[in-house]
Amino acid sequence: MPRRAKNTRRRARGARRPQRYKDVLHSQGGHRGHAFRCAGCRLEVSVDAPGTTHRNHCPTCLVSLHVDRRVPGDRAADCRARMEALCMSVRPDGEWMIIHRCVSCGELSANRIAGDDNPLALVRLALKPLRDPGIAQRTRLAP
């Protein structure tokens, strides 16, 4: 019992555990689609993206579809509703992540941005919390 307590403390204090391994299911034999049509702007999007192997959103309007559960490409979710970009998050190594929210069931998911995502849409998303002057005024950071 003491050993177990020691291990959990080390996990809590130490560096973040590495990202869990995910098979790339978008290529051969995973699922049949090699391109998808965006549910938001009807753009035909190829799954081959620069900088990521798990593209799940449209590079123009950042809209995704709720088809996967935990593993990208597993097609295990039966919701199939549209997922809209909710906000921007940053990993500790500086990578931007888009948080999507399903408009039907409210499920949240995170996905790294791709190299050909629209920079204007990304920056608009990142600036969303700072747009409302009322909330920024409420945060009195100076003493």
């Binding site: 909710l86 998050s89 919390p129 747009r131 409302d132 009322g134």
Partner: peptide, 14 residues
């Protein structure tokens, strides 16, 4: 990890 702004205008913490 992030702050989101839904339609209501209040901040949500993710």
């Amino acid at each position: 990890i992030a702050v989101a702004v839904p339609r209501t205008g209040d901040w949500m913490v993710i």
